[in-house]
Design a binder for these strands. Structure first.
Lengths: 217, 217
DNA sequence: GTCAACTGTTTTGTATACAAGAATTGGATT
DNA sequence: AATCCAATTCTTGTATACAAAACAGTTGAC
């Protein structure tokens, strides 16, 4: 028998949610999922319970599980918190980064440069993710890393949308440059505010987000 | 039949953990819990799955659930993140608080004054909690409020320990005064740094924490 | 006396069974 | 034709059953 079915189901369903395979508001039928994964309802339910605890789905009593469909306003709030957590990670990274962190950060940055120049937004999306994880890692706070990773993951679908906005990729990359600079030269407060600015969905970017969300539905 | 057994179990077990009724490292036996609550193993398991997703317990394959026993270093990291989240809440509160928020904040602060003067650390513990929730609420960011509440709850046992440190109650209260002042006068950055200082476990306070933890075990 | 292997027990992981509430469909009435 | 009500069907929530792995205790060999 498989090593850990519940864990696998949890990851697969979570992935299905953040990749929009299961779209917001969609009902998740236990039997259907069970059949799809070739298991009984029990492990499916246990996986759903975990996702409910994380806040990815909502389980209404005797009415099943549905994928959470956050209002734009709530997505904004999530980015706001993400901005603060990343800012914190950047600040710590500036003070604590090792030679290895420096290398990782520069490598991730170089990757972003290539994909940004190639105007390849799909690749940039992944390279950008690598870059941000490099910042988290350099913070050397395991708890913060986990929190950042969890929230980052949850915001994945919306980050992707944002890259579609005109010139966002180039702007993003040049912001990265300043961030790398601040971190590597140990300017904690500078890294903090640059990252906060980089993540936050401010001004026009919020209306862009709302518009794209509306279009998508 | 009860409205929602799993939810109830989740809350009861979680409460048992944060109140140290189930101590760190302790094994949580499914059958035992089931008997204790007068239900079958199924809802117990589902509740445990949720707690595992939140990070309060760890479920090792075929070896059952144990209450997470975080290293002092990790507790420090958790406080570090808590400090940043509360700082953010304070900053937002300074900019967004309503008249109702102002009243709640002042009321909570007055309560703290009474229990601090009475040197009643048990009551102060609860009043302090009310005070911090008032700050969260005043931020008017539902997601941030939830995040703060979740982490606050998780850190409950350690906060309680900290209050036992000599004079901590009085110091805490006078810090609150400055925080209230900053928030109500709209000084966002001041509120931010005051709250960060207030929460962070810096310098001696970390050794105090470690010592108290060691003594407790 | 110590260590290892075997056996019996306990406990977890998954499947299935059953009960109860919600959704749905069909019919009757207006 | 539309609406309301009842009966049926479907889905969820909980319990139980069963299989497999971990654990413990005992016995036997060196």
């Amino acid at each position: 028998m498989a090593e850990n079915i519940v864990q696998r189901l949890r990851d697969e369903i979570e992935n299905g949610i953040v990749t929009n395979q299961y779209s917001p508001g969609e009902r998740l039928d236990e039997m259907q999922l069970a059949r799809h994964f070739g298991v009984s309802r029990t492990p499916v339910r246990e996986a759903l319970m975990q996702l409910s605890a994380i806040g990815l789905i909502e389980i209404r009593a005797r009415r099943g599980a549905v994928v959470i469909d956050p209002a734009p306003h709530r997505i904004y709030e999530m980015f706001e918190v993400m901005a603060e957590l990343e800012a914190m990670a950047g600040s710590l990274a500036a003070r604590r980064h090792t030679d290895t962190d420096r290398a990782e950060l520069l490598a991730a940055h170089a990757k972003c440069e290539r994909s940004a120049n190639a105007e390849d937004s799909d690749t940039y999306y992944y390279d950008n993710e690598t870059f941000h994880y490099a910042v988290y890692t350099a913070s050397h706070s395991s708890f913060l890393i986990e929190q950042c990773a969890a929230l980052h993951r949850r915001l994945r679908p919306y980050r992707r949308l944002q890259l579609r906005v005109r010139n966002r990729m180039k702007t993003s990359f040049s912001e990265h440059a300043a961030i790398v600079d601040a971190i590597l030269s140990g300017e904690a407060e500078s890294a903090r505010s640059l990252l906060r600015q980089h993540i936050a969905v401010q001004g026009d970017r919020f209306s862009d987000l709302v518009a794209t969300l509306a279009r998508q539905r």
